[in-house]
Design a protein around this nucleic acid. Sequence first.
RNA 1: GUCCUGUUCGUCUAGCGGUUAGGACACCGGGUUUUCAUCCCGGAAACAGGAGUUCGAUUCUCCUACGGGACGCCA
Length: 439
Amino acid sequence: MLKVRVRFAPSPTGYFHIGGARTALFNWLYAKHTGGTFVLRIEDSDMERNTKESLQSLLTNLRWLGLHWDEGPEVGGAYGSYFQSERNDIYQHHLQILKDAGRVYEKEGALWLKVSGKMQTIDDIIHGPVQRLEEKDFVIYRSNGTPVFHFVNVVDDITMKITHVIRGEDHLSNTSKHLELYQAFGVPAPKFAHIPLILKTDGPGKMSKRDRGSLVEEYRNKFFLPEALINYLSLLGWSPKDDREFLSLEEIIQAFDLVGINKTHARFDERKLSFLNAEHMKHLPKEEFFRRGVWVLQQTNHADYVKNEPYLQQIFAIVQEKLRSFEELPHFISYFFDEQYPFEPTALQKVAKHQPQARLVELQSLFQSLPSLDTNTVETAIQSLSKEKNLPAGDYIHTLRFAISGRTVGPSLYHMLGVLGKEIVLKRIQRCVEAHLFS
RNA sequence: GUCCUGUUCGUCUAGCGGUUAGGACACCGGGUUUUCAUCCCGGAAACAGGAGUUCGAUUCUCCUACGGGACGCCA
């Protein structure tokens, strides 16, 4: 069995977007699944539109996603260069082959390929046989002497020994041109798999770089988990054919195959992506959550939160199950580090109706009588206090959370008290009492 | 316009002739956590339409409608 060689061949003309990432992912997955080789080739034959920044963005985001290439830029390989702009000799050589075969003519300074007039049959792994007649001759070299996409794409796939071309369905109609080329060169075509496109969340058409949420960069900047994006993207046009949706990379590689890919276009849904991100957050091993959390804090100018590591570890431990995304982390835990935390107006409103001032005073004397505020002690103490005063425990709990954090939402209150400790908690209650917020 | 291609809940999907058409997100309701963005339970929600083929079509064929793509000296 021939070893699989697949490639992702983007042109660096803008930011790396979701559609490209999914195409890269499917190629990468197929290589991993079959033990094949994943090639990254830069299609920069249109010099005017290429930028260094797009190339950098591409490489950075591909690596962030974990889609490392076996051959390509900064990695090398036996079939380089992996930049089309550096493969001119190869293209000239192949042009000569077509000329010798009598398939090329010049018109208005450009070089055209004479089509065969034969009906082409694309044997697509996803769509089955697709027939299409390429009716018109087409340009393979521009009048400025540079080769065009269809030509270089085919020449590169031949010379790089690509076995499977996995690309977006927008190329399905182009494939008859490519088949003309393969035949003109006298070489067999690779296998094709045209994957369905990703459509806009709402409105007509495929997702484009201008659509909100379409850039991989956005998710990296918002501290999404790359494994969550991968998981979500893998589910666009593919599924493991059972009820699993929360999947690790290993599970995806294991189950992935070209024949299981759908024919229908999929609509991008950021809400499901967020859900998957939250799931992956919860399943992160403690140490990994800590490692990445620290990194996020440093990136967002909250390095001071990291100074006391054991303290931070305690905070992370009670916060992990509540966080949907690392983007929320700095704000979510800010009051653990700031005695001047603000009292949120909406939170105040919710709490104000339960005679908070009186409750806080009662809690003060209760806590002073306790040796420490560990979770169990505090829980039973508050329970019996509410029973004694014949009040709902919620009156104490809501008020207390508000007093020590300024908010109505956060991690488990009893655990919070334990992490903050008796001294700080009493200080915070005092601060709240003295603020006279409830008049 | 021509040529390709597709059509299962709002969305992502399972299903490959006989199923109460399954799951997930989102949504709604209830419960737990006497907070909550966690967790648990429940609910509403789909085979585009029409002809065939067949004992029987969501599944096969054709037509219509609708969606998507390609028709560049862009990739």
